[in-house]
């Protein structure tokens, strides 16, 4: 490369340095730290070792992984189906209406910024002294909060759907809006019934977006931490909570090393799902213009 081109490149790069430095220090280095340390042993010199990776296959870690997959998978399916229905309701209402704006804003808040607050929402509803619990107790004499199911996997599934459905609405509404009225008119004018239009036109067009969104929901639930951490204060039934106990327990030496391996497991699962998601989104982008 000639010197003048090189010096121009350098001058062009300089203004990017603050941005690159922040991303490098606070995103790239932590990620690399996790990956490297997952393959070290607990000794002071940190020699290369597969001990921490091996610990991922211990019964406790495998059980947490299985529960995490069950939680993410079930809430992704429930969220995707119900979210698609709610998305259809929203799209077929007038786009300028205040109701629609309010619903979309509420969905954004619940899907993306809820976290801890959602755990408390359900504690206030079906917790020990929850509003619904007391109503049902007075009216029917049942104790809704009995057996503490809210703090188990069942409870997590319920609370997670409360942010998964809104997330589905947010990612799926653009695809629904991309379905043009002309396509339906064309199908109808060629003699298709509503059901035929739905089955032959809408479903094939929306299928990649629907599957992609479901994958996104899976990754979102798998990596979610705040809601579960606020709800389940002891024990670690799922991977994110296992990471918490590995990070915070000072009793068992070498536990914090295990957190690196668990975090790597999370990177691998989420990255694999996101790659599949990107492939599906690219297929959708072909007609979503």
């Amino acid at each position: 490369m000639p010197v003048s081109t090189l010096s121009r490149r350098v001058r062009e790069t300089l203004p990017l340095l603050p941005f690159l430095a922040v991303v490098l220090i606070f995103l790239v280095i932590p990620t690399v730290t996790v990956i490297v340390n997952a393959f070290r042993d607990d000794g002071a010199d940190g020699a290369a070792s597969l001990a921490r990776i091996g610990a991922l296959f211990s019964p406790a870690a495998l059980a947490a992984l299985a529960k995490s997959v069950l939680l993410s998978g079930s809430t992704a399916i429930i969220g995707a189906v119900l979210g698609a229905v709610l998305g259809w309701l929203i799209v077929s209402s007038p786009s300028t209406s205040m109701v629609r704006r309010a619903v979309i804003s509420l969905c954004s808040v619940l899907a993306q910024f809820g976290g801890v607050a959602l755990a408390f929402a359900f504690l206030a509803t079906v917790g020990l002294n929850g509003v619904l619990t007391l109503w049902v107790q007075q009216a029917l004499g049942w104790n809704l909060a009995a057996s503490g199911w809210l703090y188990s996997l069942t409870g997590l599934i319920l609370v997670y759907t409360y942010f998964q459905i809104p997330l589905m609405v947010i990612v799926f509404v653009p695809a629904l809006e991309g379905l043009r009225a002309q396509w339906r008119e064309a199908a109808v004018s060629l003699g298709a019934s509503r059901w035929q239009y739905f089955r032959e036109v809408a479903v094939p067009l929306l299928a990649p977006a629907f599957l992609g969104s479901a994958l996104l929901l899976f990754a979102n639930a798998f990596a979610a931490y705040a809601t579960a951490a606020a709800l389940v204060s002891q024990g670690s039934p799922i991977v994110p909570l296992l990471i918490r106990s590995a990070l915070t327990s000072e009793v068992v030496l070498g536990q914090s090393g295990f957190a690196y391996a668990l975090a790597l497991e999370m990177i691998v699962v989420v990255a694999a799902v996101m790659v599949a998601y990107n492939i599906l989104v690219r297929r959708t982008a072909r007609w979503l213009r």
Partner: peptide, 8 residues
């Protein structure tokens, strides 16, 4: 995920 960032 933020959880991974905080570990590293």
């Amino acid at each position: 995920p933020a959880l991974v960032i905080v570990v590293g």
